[in-house]
């Protein structure tokens, strides 16, 4: 049956309510890219999401439409998802001792106590 719509454009297209000229085949929607946006010069590019595109040039175009519709942007990177190497969440224990390494933090060095004690010793 031909679809009759309130929208004259749809009625004019004479769409059949049954037609389906076959299934989409796998990966007809292209490969995926990861998108990195820089909102201001001097800041880091930040990962904002991913998208499907046939090539990097189209990925930039889609990234601009998809992730930069609002606010400011000054630069975009797109990277093929397949080119990103990632750690496994199951290996998260490799980061576990980092927080214990307090000697890497400035807060770990408290000299004033020692200086004051020294001064007190000199001028009792």
């Amino acid at each position: 049956m031909i679809i009759q719509s309130l929208d004259p454009r749809i009625s004019r297209a004479r769409l059949d309510d049954q037609s389906c000229d076959g299934q989409l085949s796998e990966h007809e929607h292209f490969e995926t890219f990861e998108v990195f946006q820089q909102v201001k010069r001097g800041t880091h590019h930040q990962h904002v999401g991913s998208l499907h595109a046939p090539n990097p040039e189209m990925a930039i175009l889609f990234a601009k439409e998809q992730y930069c519709r609002r606010g400011k942007s000054v630069n975009l990177w797109v990277v093929k998802t397949s080119d990103v190497f990632v750690t496994d969440y199951e290996d998260a224990d490799i980061f576990e001792t980092t927080e214990d390494k307090k000697y890497r933090d400035p807060e770990a060095y408290k000299v004033m106590d020692r200086i004051n004690a020294y001064k007190a010793r000199l001028n009792p």
Binding site: E28, E31, P54, K80
Partner: peptide, 23 residues
């Protein structure tokens, strides 16, 4: 979907490998 198919086909990169998005 049907009317856009030829555009997608024309843009298709045959050698491309699909990987599901990272996050």
């Amino acid at each position: 979907e049907e009317k856009g198919r030829w555009v997608r086909k024309a843009l298709m990169n045959q050698g491309a490998m699909y990987v599901s998005p990272l996050s």
